[in-house]
């Protein structure tokens, strides 16, 4: 078990465990934010696992998750708009986790991979993660502010 796998295990145990508690208890706004953070953490853990097992094809799982995770959160922002409007998410802990954790994981992985196509793919996944999390967090906050019931996350984010 090398350092990458140890880091992945720590991320899964220390990160996904608490988000599980956040998703299972508390108000809806905290549950949605915790679910979004869980997608981020599992994606980063998958990247670390790919490097730890030295199988570059495992990175595809993280790429798919980086695309699907924020999309799922946007779906929740749209469908749970009524609950979120009653009590919109206030804190920005999820966004900060994305901005701080993603470079912490992606940059060492890029250094380990060396310059080339693999490093570009890792950087793309990192950029997708940060951008997706910021868009999702904005949509969640905006879903609480909008007055119209049918407003989508994109319109809510603009408003």
């Amino acid at each position: 078990m090398n350092g990458w796998l140890t880091a992945a295990a720590a991320l899964l145990a220390g990160g996904v465990g608490p988000t599980l508690w956040g998703v299972a208890t508390g108000p809806v706004r905290r549950r949605v934010v915790a679910q979004n953070t869980a997608t981020l953490l599992v994606c980063l853990a998958t990247l670390l696992l790919a490097q730890g097992y030295e199988r570059s094809s495992y990175v595809d799982v993280a790429l798919v998750l980086a695309v699907l995770g924020p999309a799922g959160t946007l779906v929740y922002a749209r469908l749970l708009a009524e609950d979120l409007r009653a009590a919109p998410p206030t804190g920005r802990a999820g966004t900060w986790a994305a901005v701080v954790l993603t470079p912490l994981v992606v940059v060492p992985l890029c250094v380990a991979a060396g310059p080339g196509r693999a490093a570009l793919k890792l950087l793309l996944i990192g950029a997708l993660l940060v951008a997706g999390n910021m868009v999702a967090a904005r949509a969640l906050r905006g879903a609480g502010r909008t007055d119209r019931e049918g407003a989508g996350p994109a319109e809510a984010a603009r408003g």
Binding site: V16, T19, L20, V23, V42, L65
Partner: peptide
């Protein structure tokens, strides 16, 4: 959805 994530991991 979190169960799906952990299963994927």
């Amino acid at each position: 959805s979190l169960l799906g994530l952990t299963l994927a991991a």
